[in-house]
Design a binder for these strands. Sequence first.
DNA 1: TAGATTGTTAATCGATTAACAATC
DNA 2: TAGATTGTTAATCGATTAACAATC
Lengths: 222, 222
Amino acid sequence: MSKNEKVSKSVIRRLPRYYRFLGELLREGITKISSRELAERMSVTASQIRQDLNCFGGFGQQGYGYNVSELREEIGAILGVNAKHAAVLIGAGNLGRALAVHLDYAKYGCRLCGIFDSNEKLTGASLGGIRVSPLSDLESFCAKAKPVIAILCIPKDSAPDICEKLISLGVKAFWNFSHYDMPQKNLPGVTVENVHLGDSLMALCYGITNSETEKTESPDQM
Amino acid sequence: MSKNEKVSKSVIRRLPRYYRFLGELLREGITKISSRELAERMSVTASQIRQDLNCFGGFGQQGYGYNVSELREEIGAILGVNAKHAAVLIGAGNLGRALAVHLDYAKYGCRLCGIFDSNEKLTGASLGGIRVSPLSDLESFCAKAKPVIAILCIPKDSAPDICEKLISLGVKAFWNFSHYDMPQKNLPGVTVENVHLGDSLMALCYGITNSETEKTESPDQM
DNA sequence: TAGATTGTTAATCGATTAACAATC
DNA sequence: TAGATTGTTAATCGATTAACAATC
């Protein structure tokens, strides 16, 4: 499927966005699009789109453009949106509960199959059809269900130990919402997405403080 | 505070991480650190740290290193973590409710001052001490409270209109969790953080499918 | 002073954009 | 065929890393 060279992280991170925009086009009933038109919609350059896609293959047709439906399928296949990867959610606090019921996992190639929490007050409840189990059941559960993804909504301090345990239980990918900065290196074959909501919010604050109200050089009349 | 050249987005996005690690050091009672030691902890290069910091000023001391507490304060000031920017949350669904109660806004320079939802079933409830108000009250509320940040946890279709309205009401920054791709361009003075959780999850799935199990060239004995 | 480590300049690397030949 | 648009190579740009003189 892919050409043999390693695809850069920047390219990968743009694929889901292409996938979304192509879905939108499809819903609008648009069947064909040129890189130029798509670029305009997405506020990127046509060059970038063509370069990105050509990391994986020639999906277009010269003189014509790209078939929207076909291209979307191709990108979906590259991302693996039909994979139904089994995922466990660790931590059923506010954020964990929201992630359990708010997201359409099937749409993103996943399938939530277990929810765990160490707090007895939270176990037993049902979230989106899945019972919250005590953390002590995690090991036996993983032996059976063999989840490849763990979604971490746990306190910073407990994160390192739980990560280690999950890796030993066969988890290959971490969607990490904890304040623990999970290292990507030294873990061959393990994929990590650290989602630091606080960092994102601080970056937003920076934008406010250092707002682009910077006047151009012209001193204006006065 | 800052040198006159525009600081690149890559640098800005690293600042919150520095801020977090420095906080951690402080908690550990470490008062001084060299760029080399910090780099090792953070799995980055010492060069990058020094380059990043020198976008804003010389915070270190040659032959010594950086004072942890002082450097943390400086970065905090750059980010504006003491700013207490007023923020409104739009959409009190699962994700919205989690964001209302799960985050320590004060820690990140913000202050949640209003929650709105168009669904009557959700209005009236209290989340983290704030009543959920009907969206029809948004305009009068903004006139009084003058929020500069909007946190969007709303459906894709309603997002464009609400964004436009919020901008007209003086909102300067959007923390956007909706599936709408809010444009950053064409909106001078407006800062946007699009947090596409689905994109993040798909990138994770890509990592699983295309796992780094790629053997090195050596064919191994067999 | 000698040793250490910054601040900063220069070199390298990678990613983006532009250009254009290939081709539908 | 002529026109359009891709796939791909080359040029540019920006970000990262290395090197080292300044200096504490």
